[in-house]
Computed example of a mutant assay.
Amino acid sequence: MKTPPPSELVAEWPLPPLASLGSTVRAIGIQRELRRHLPWKMRGFLRVDGNQAVLHLPIEEKEAFSAASAKIATAIEEISAYPVLPSEVEDILGISSRERHKWMKQSRLKSAGTRTVKMRGRAKAVTFHVFDAQHIEDILDRDLPTIWRQEDAAMSAENRKRAAAKRRQTRTQARSQSGCAGSADDASGSKLEGWDVFAAEGLLRAPRK
């Protein structure tokens, strides 16, 4: 029994280890970047499936298939140099947007530069930080987000402790100042009116003999 001729042309390329970093979000981004190298009508025939890119075209598109395959093969060689986008970083490391901003400010998470794009439906372009794939891989391998969260929790606890101690000190000083003011008022209030004149007249002195 003869094997029926193939109905489509298929090419597959393994992705480099630094490609998706286990992130579905980044895999979608890589697929989008690879498709940009193809004519618009052919972009839907390329997909990223797991750790490989797959191109499939109808058998009649042999010439277009050869040209597209060459472009994709060249593009895949550059995948490891693709910057990691903010949404991809959050998915790869399992962190929140708030943590990403905080750790960037603390220079734990290092920016590899910025990118500016014009978004559909927005009048102004959007500028955001991007990250080096090797830097993100190192953070992932060392599980640094877990360590950073522990350090942040310890720092927050210490800050709360210091703030509570400062509030206690402030209340103690306020009570002390209030007590001193009360003693002064008592001393002045206990002095009889005209006492100085009364004493000056010598009325308290013993009568002379």
Rank of each mutant, 00 (worst) to 15 (best):
S7C: 06
V10W: 11
W13V: 01
P14N: 07
G22T: 01
V25M: 12
R26V: 01
Q31N: 02
E33V: 06
L34G: 00
M42A: 04
D49S: 03
D49Q: 05
D49F: 01
A53D: 01
L55F: 03
I59A: 14
K62N: 10
A68M: 05
A70H: 07
I72K: 03
I76F: 02
E77D: 11
V84A: 00
L85E: 15
D91M: 08
I92P: 02
L93D: 09
G94M: 05
S96R: 08
R98D: 12
W103N: 05
K105Q: 10
K105D: 06
S107G: 08
S107M: 11
R108H: 15
L109A: 06
L109N: 05
T114D: 05
T114P: 00
M119K: 14
R120H: 09
K124F: 04
A125K: 12
A125C: 04
T127A: 10
T127I: 09
F128L: 05
H129M: 03
V130Y: 01
H135L: 03
D138F: 08
L140W: 03
Q150N: 13
S156L: 15
N159Q: 15
R160D: 11
A163K: 15
A165M: 02
R168Q: 06
A174R: 14
R175Y: 07
S178N: 10
A184H: 13
D186K: 13
D186V: 10
S190T: 04
K191Q: 11
K191G: 03
K191W: 09
G194V: 09
G202K: 12
